[in-house]
Nucleic acid binder design. Structure first.
Lengths: 230, 230
DNA sequence: GGCGGGTACATTGCATACAAGGAGCGTTTA
DNA sequence: TAAACGCTCCTTGTATGCAATGTACCCGCC
């Protein structure tokens, strides 16, 4: 995570692995609601719809299962995962401790350039907030948290957070942003703690931040696709 | 996690999904060192070796990648993952926060029967320790931590911990057990905190416990396959 | 009218076949 | 002799085909 962006050898263009494209397409179809929770995904239908054979479909479905998007019942096929209220709360709880740990590590490893970058992302988030740009706000939020774990340098943590984050983003569709103002103010305080190199403080602030988001969710929104980001 | 053991409908016998058997076989081959880190896994070779076609092999490899056992470089194939010192430390760090959170949840949700079960597992661990039974100790340790997250009732957490735990178990082969005595004493204090319903205390004790294990590892063992469990 | 059985269909699981891409190696030439 | 080119083989990626299994519907029987 600490390496320069050009570390991964990517000469000029990659041959475009088909299963990856299928994965992205299906994940998007699930995230935007085209494929509804509980729906039975028939391999041949998907294959025809996407214009490929069943093989890449199958491989994509396996990965989708691994990431919690679908359930693969043996000999029955794939079903779009139906998130329960309980599961969402659990997911938010796990995200909270992981993000807190991420902030802890970031405070320990951040260099001045990282702080500057965080402030840029913060500014971008506030701009999106001012513009009532829900989509931009979600992106900025993701970028902020993702850069935090990048700073921490913990690849294992980055993997786990990205798994959790993807599912959280699914449940928390980019429609409502009532918590945006508070959330980004809290981001600012986290940045301050990281700039001070105070790992404990950053960790505590981040935990408070994400727990407030969780609490906000538990009180208000009940159904996915209309909850805040944070 | 809280449901009765008979919840999952399992009529009489399951048809044994082949890809699952392949996954287990390959994971075992990697864990016990038959397939060495960095080794190139050729699909057709594995297929012939296991007596199946390439299809189940491919599907198993995808899952193995998702769980961090192999790396799948597009157009190059699968390579057994080579764990770095840095990655192991990161893995232990993540495990620490997840297990602490698990203990926190367990303290909140434990019922008397759970406490009793934990004490049984504790006794089993101490028995294995007394008998210098490394394998039994590893199993008991896994059972202990896995029952904790079961008590917490957090399925998402259980999934993540199991992912991390599998990899930790790979690196920490069941050979040495110098930290066993301290580790199980610390387990006992965690149980006490859970019995008291003191979530904060349980969380803190568990974090201290796993962080001590991490520190123990960083000081002593450097190579996998000869480190303690905890 | 309700229940049981049987058949046909739909879908998954697995195997095989084909095509494309890359790596390694040998040969050839300057 | 060294370097560059080209070729061949190997491996992966994708597609198609076949068999087994589970499901649903329909018909017949009680």
């Amino acid at each position: 995570m600490r390496e320069s962006p050009s570390t991964g050898t990517r000469p000029v263009a990659r041959p475009a692995p088909l299963r990856q494209a299928v994965y992205d397409a299906l994940a998007e179809l699930i995230a935007n609601g085209t494929l509804r929770p509980g729906q039975h995904l028939v391999e041949s239908d998907l294959a025809e719809y996407l214009g490929v054979s069943r093989q890449p479909i199958r491989e994509a479905l396996q990965r989708l299962q691994g990431d919690g998007w679908v359930e693969l019942r043996p000999a029955h096929g794939a079903f779009v995962h139906t998130p329960t209220e309980e599961e969402i709360v659990q997911l938010l709880g796990v995200r909270s401790v992981l993000e807190a740990y991420s902030a802890h590590g970031a405070a320990q490893h951040a260099i001045p350039a990282d702080i500057a970058r965080l402030r840029e992302l913060q500014a971008a988030g506030e701009a999106a907030l001012a513009a009532d740009d829900a989509r931009g706000l979600v992106d900025a939020n993701t970028a902020f948290h993702s850069y935090l774990v990048h700073i921490s340098g913990n690849k294992v943590l980055a993997d786990l957070i990205s798994q959790v984050e993807r599912r959280v983003r699914w449940y928390f569709m980019p429609t409502a942003l009532p918590r945006g103002t508070d959330a980004w103010a809290e981001h600012a305080s986290v940045i301050a703690a990281i700039a001070d190199g105070d790992a404990e403080c950053a960790q505590r602030l981040m935990r408070d931040h994400t727990e407030r988001t969780t609490e906000f969710y538990r009180q208000d929104a009940v159904t996915p696709a209309q909850a805040p980001v944070g």
